[in-house]
Design a protein around this nucleic acid. Structure first.
Length: 358
DNA sequence: AACCCGGGGTC
DNA sequence: GACCCAGGGTT
């Protein structure tokens, strides 16, 4: 069945038009200045689920701080998370450093160009594997991301739901069938660039498309109806009271989150799950959980933070304590100035305006 | 295959 | 506020 789809498709013509268009129109992006496999790798991890415009400043700061694979391997994880702060999906940073250390330990510091070895590294899935192999090593491996699925669903008129895992595998098969052997790097980057600049989700600019003549969706006037994609389900709401607890030294209590799950190893102000606790017992519950006596002060406001699967409804409350030490290693009293040294998720960066000197 | 992981943008 | 974008890991 898949053979049918590529039958009578002019692979040669498509490749030529796409690659020529890419060479003439590619954006000057920081990770395109050389083919250093390490930099290609970092950029592809950052670009997962993240827009190019968002990634650019992060990539530049990251490479300035960790210019080589070894610099990253020997860095402190907290510093790496701090550099990643605000970019989201922090497991990407932890997996990347884990994988880089593996490359130093097992591959003499050289990024492997073998698909099996590369794909076994933490954080490198089918897409990133193909992207690194094609862009850094010029190997004809498919790299199918959302852009590529959108372009191919239109060009080849594929009406399957791209949200399904098995459908993504089908696209990898098609991509494998049409990728250029001569210039796989430009082909893969070209098809993604096309998806980003021309074959956009809404209102694609078909009149400027270099492969319009090969596009089956365009021929049938249905480019706006593809790809087919089922919708994600709604997020659950969770209520917390966030405590901004200040001691006599004008230090605030922060805690390091667990080393797995949501926002792993990031820091935050203590959060009380009010739905379970109830507001009345908050100070009691806090003493039990944290071993610290507090006096609740005043409500400062409400914040909402939206994740892909959760919505945090946050009530910000100030409190005081006479303590300046905590028994738990994940708890710390920190001065205002020192807060900047810790990696906080964006949700808790929103608290900073409520941090004031006494 | 279903679910868990952030953050940003547009309208 | 509703909607859209988008890979990898784990179970």
């Amino acid at each position: 069945m898949t053979e049918q789809i590529l039958q009578s498709f002019d692979v040669q013509g498509f490749q030529t038009n796409l690659i020529d268009w890419y060479q003439a129109n590619k954006r000057d992006l920081p990770w395109r200045h050389d083919q250093d496999p390490y930099k290609v790798w970092v950029s592809e991890i950052m670009l997962q689920q993240t827009q190019v415009a968002t990634v650019i400043p992060y990539f530049q700061r990251f490479i300035a701080k960790y210019p080589t694979l070894h610099d990253l391997a020997y860095a402190d994880q907290q510093d790496v998370l701090k550099t990643w702060e605000g970019l989201g999906y922090y497991s990407r940073a932890r997996h990347l450093q884990n994988a880089v250390r593996e490359v130093v330990a097992s591959y003499d510091g050289e990024v492997p160009d073998d698909p099996k070895a590369l794909g076994s590294l933490k954080g490198i899935g089918p897409y990133t594997k193909g992207a690194i192999l094609s862009i850094a090593f010029n190997k004809p491996q498919p790299a199918v991301d959302g852009n590529v699925m959108r372009v191919l669903s239109r060009v080849l008129k594929i009406e399957d739901d791209i949200a399904q895992p098995k459908v993504k595998k089908q696209f990898e098969h098609y991509a494998d069938g049409i990728i250029s052997d001569k210039d796989p790097s430009s082909f893969n980057q070209g098809i993604m660039e096309l998806g980003a600049l021309v074959c956009t989700p809404k209102e694609p600019m078909c009149l400027f498309c270099p492969v319009q003549e090969y596009c089956r969706a365009f021929q049938e006037g249905m480019e706006q109806d593809l790809p087919v994609k089922s919708k994600a389900k709604k997020q659950k709401k969770v209520h917390y009271t966030v405590l901004l607890i200040c001691n006599d030294n004008d230090e605030y209590l922060i805690e390091k989150r667990p080393d797995d799950g949501l926002l792993a190893n990031m820091w935050q102000f203590p959060m009380v799950p009010v739905d379970e606790i109830g507001k009345d017992h908050m100070d009691n519950w806090f003493q039990l959980e944290y071993g610290i006596d507090i006096t609740l002060s005043a409500k400062q406001g409400d914040l909402k933070h939206v994740f892909s699967h959760i919505i945090w409804q946050l009530e910000i409350v100030t409190a005081t304590t006479s303590r300046d030490q905590a028994a738990d290693k994940r708890l710390r009293f920190v001065s205002r100035d020192m807060l900047d040294e810790y990696p906080f998720p964006v949700s808790h960066q929103k608290m900073m305006p409520y941090i004031t000197s006494r």
